[in-house]
């Protein structure tokens, strides 16, 4: 019986070195003893033993930091929680996340995403600020359940790589930022709903979404960003018609 620890797996990795390569192209690496490695460990092994110039992002190795998103065999995945033994036999293809500009090898530009997150006021804006002496803001389990799943987002951007509308329109606010928006708009302690709604009207807001829904399927944290986007289409539409009645 062949020793599984000795099994060699081939990785085809999309390489791009700015200033040197005109366009990305695939490089192939054989990793020995890869049977029980995650894709991230295989990349680290390549970097340590075969090619020190290979660039990729990672931090926690346990699916909480959201740094290691990449296309694995064409699907957006976290490299640290995707194991080679679970992939079909044969070479494994690794590419940077779809729909994002490539900085270098598997590293993509995240600036646009960070700007989107900043734009939706990603913090609780209480109606009346309390002093420490006045005690904490209280919340019932039901009030927590109303937004809890949206607070599980790790900003990994897999949902953006799965979104064809974001591919067509990079300015589309997109699933991840909308999940965060709903995390705050759904929070009973927050009063910033109107400010956030004002940021998501129009083509670059929720209305680029056509409910393709794959964002929710690829999300590693079951955040269901499609739910965040689509319930806010209703909110955006109501807000459009009701703003005439609202007294500021």
């Amino acid at each position: 019986m062949p020793d599984p620890a000795k099994k060699t797996i081939e990785l085809r990795i999309l390489r791009y070195q700015p200033g040197v390569d005109a366009a990305p192209s695939f490089g192939t690496f054989e990793v020995a003893g890869a049977e029980n490695m995650s894709v991230l460990e295989a990349l680290q092994t390549i970097k340590d033993t075969l090619d020190g110039s290979l660039s990729f992002r990672w931090s926690c190795r346990m699916a909480v930091c959201g740094s290691c998103g990449m296309m694995i065999n064409g699907e957006p995945k976290l490299a640290c929680s995707t194991f080679l033994r679970d992939l079909p036999p044969g070479p494994v293809t690794v590419e940077p996340l779809n729909n994002f500009p490539i900085e270098r090898d598997l590293v993509i530009s995240v600036g646009g995403f960070v700007k989107k997150i900043e734009s939706i006021y990603p913090y609780i804006m209480p109606k009346e600020p309390k002093t420490v002496e006045q005690g904490p803001y209280r919340q019932t389990p039901a009030q927590l359940a109303a937004y809890e799943s949206f607070s599980d987002c790790i900003n990994c951007m897999l949902c953006y790589a799965a979104c064809p509308q974001f591919g067509e329109n990079p300015d589309f606010i997109g699933p991840g930022a909308m999940a965060l928006l709903q995390r705050y708009n759904g929070d009973s302690r927050d009063a910033g709903r109107q400010k956030r709604l004002d940021t998501i009207h129009g083509e670059n807001g929720v209305w680029s979404c056509t409910a393709v829904g794959i964002c929710s399927e690829v999300c590693p944290k079951s955040v269901d960003p499609a739910n965040a986007v689509n319930q806010n289409k209703t909110n955006s539409a109501f807000d459009f018609f009701l703003r005439f009645l609202r007294k500021e």
Partner: peptide
């Protein structure tokens, strides 16, 4: 050398015809 020259891969125009997006296309049709 710190050069940022992000490379934009062209988005495929036929995404709607491929898995997993095909189910969405059939649904809309």
């Amino acid at each position: 050398m710190n050069e940022s020259r992000p490379y934009r891969r062209p988005a495929p125009k036929d995404w709607w015809a491929k898995a997993p997006y095909r189910a969405y296309t059939v649904r809309e049709m």
